[in-house]
Simulated scan of single mutants.
Amino acid sequence: MSDTWGLAGGDAIAPGLTAVRPVGGGDVYEAWLAFDDRLYAPVVVKIVRPGHVDRDASRSGLVREVEMLSRLSHPGIARLFSYDDEGPRPYLVLENVDGPDLSTLIATHGYLPLHQLLPLGLELCSALHYLRQQDVCHLDLKPSNVIMGAPARLIDFSVAMDAKQAADLTDPVGSDEYMAPEQCRPGELGTVGHASDMWAFGATMFRAAAGFRAYDRERRWAQLDQAPFGLPHVVPPAVADLILDCLAPRAEHRPEPHEVAERLEPLLANLPRAHLSGFRIKL
């Protein structure tokens, strides 16, 4: 039997929150697009799955995410509106961003053209720079955690933590294919920190630029002993070099978010300007 609340469109998630349709989730949460009567607007509700309600780790994870999001305020991070961590169906209510996640967009349409790829990189760097200033490490940046709104939004802070907590990690944290080497083997291969998010940024941008992942999916943590695949020729050398710099095995060799942004901005400025075809009127 699947670990779900068995909700359907029109059901009440909680007083004032009406389910519309499922929008994904993971092992601990199910996620729903819902209508919030208080806000009188659509929202996303993350609900702790029934099998996790009585698990202290799952409830404390929800509280940790609430506390983290309550500290953050940035255009590139989905906002927290409300939560209930004590009721029979613990949940949190998040901003609904109008757009697909990056993973779905790539699966549907393939790699992103430069006029989408470069702004995405700048927007993610903006959010990562802000998190660095707040001394927060996301630790799970990946295409499915990027919603392609205007601007793109970073979501899912369920494993995010302060930099000091990240540096003290002794066990792996993150999603296998988007984990920096030091996240796979904390201590042995370096200290987990802000540079770990830049590695995940590089892996995310690689997939967006190429349409495929940077490393072999069939082996866990192939990034520990395999060089990244080559990027397609449609990716300009300056963009490819930047992405590969972020995938440097050693944390100290990776650029910081503002350095990446400074390299992306002139590339975006030099893209051909779009114009309407057809006749022109001389004034």
Rank of each mutant, 00 (worst) to 15 (best):
T4C: 12
G9F: 12
D11C: 09
A12L: 14
L17T: 11
T18V: 14
V20Y: 10
V23W: 03
G26E: 04
E30A: 00
A31Y: 03
W32P: 03
F35C: 11
D37E: 14
P42T: 10
V43G: 08
V48M: 03
D56V: 08
D56T: 15
R59I: 13
G61D: 01
E67C: 09
S70I: 11
S73V: 03
L80Q: 01
F81L: 13
D84R: 13
G87D: 11
P88I: 10
P88K: 13
L92W: 04
V93C: 12
V93Y: 09
N96P: 04
N96I: 07
L102N: 02
T104Y: 02
T108S: 12
T108G: 05
L112Y: 06
L114G: 07
L117H: 01
P119E: 01
P119K: 03
L120W: 04
C125Y: 01
S126N: 05
A127N: 03
R132W: 02
Q133F: 02
D135A: 15
V146L: 05
A150D: 14
R153S: 01
L154C: 00
I155H: 03
D162L: 14
L169E: 06
P186D: 08
P186L: 08
E188P: 05
T191V: 14
A195C: 08
T204C: 03
A209I: 07
R217A: 15
R217D: 14
R219V: 15
Q226L: 13
L231K: 05
L242K: 04
L244S: 05
D245H: 11
L247T: 04
E252W: 08
E259R: 08
E259V: 01
E262T: 07
R263A: 10
P266N: 07
N270S: 15
A274N: 05
